[in-house]
């Protein structure tokens, strides 16, 4: 989790003050400011090429119990043949200290344009999945996730 684990009181205070929305404040400010926006991160992946909506299905639970392990499934409509397949799938987030989550490389031998993983979300935010197809086109889908946290958080010390 991208927060100080030692700040029990502070953290509990935040949680009880109404959800995890403020947790990102516990991060070193320089880093929090340095991260690119979601749009900049997507542009970095596509090289500025236009991104169309569709073909990609991003599946995340709208409400998660703990931001430390949020199950994500991305499925892209594609025959996955040598001539027409998904080349890469990238996942980006809006409010973690870094925009990048993961980039997956696929090909015709992958069989399906589909994968699942588990990711960390520092707070409630938007996620976006962008797929690069073998014809050089980009497709995306985004989703909002609300993160609640466990209530009894122990002190590490």
């Amino acid at each position: 989790m991208n927060v100080r684990e030692t700040g029990l009181i502070g953290r509990r205070g935040l949680i009880l003050a109404g959800g995890a929305g403020l947790l990102v404040l516990a991060l070193p400010p320089a880093r929090a400011l340095a991260r690119p926006s979601l749009q900049e991160a997507v542009n970095g992946f596509t090289g500025g090429k236009p991104v169309e909506t569709g073909k990609v299905k991003l599946d995340v639970p709208p409400l998660v119990e703990n931001g430390n392990a949020v199950g994500v499934t991305v499925a892209v409509e594609s025959p996955m043949t040598a001539g027409d397949h998904v080349r890469r799938i990238a996942l980006f987030n809006e409010k973690n200290p870094q925009a990048d989550v993961a980039v997956f490389t696929l090909g015709p031998r992958t069989g399906r344009g589909r994968l699942s993983t588990r990711i960390r979300l520092a707070t409630s935010q938007t996620l976006i999945a962008v797929a690069e197809l073998s014809d050089g086109s980009y497709w995306s889908s985004s989703a909002n996730v609300i993160v609640t946290l466990a209530a009894c958080i122990e002190d590490l010390s």
């Binding site: 509990r12 949680i15 009880l16 959800g19 119990e65 609640t148 946290l149 466990a150 209530a151 009894c152």
Partner: peptide, 11 residues
Amino acid sequence: DANWRGRLGGS
């Protein structure tokens, strides 16, 4: 025992 049906800070 008394409040097991409840929720606390989301859990």
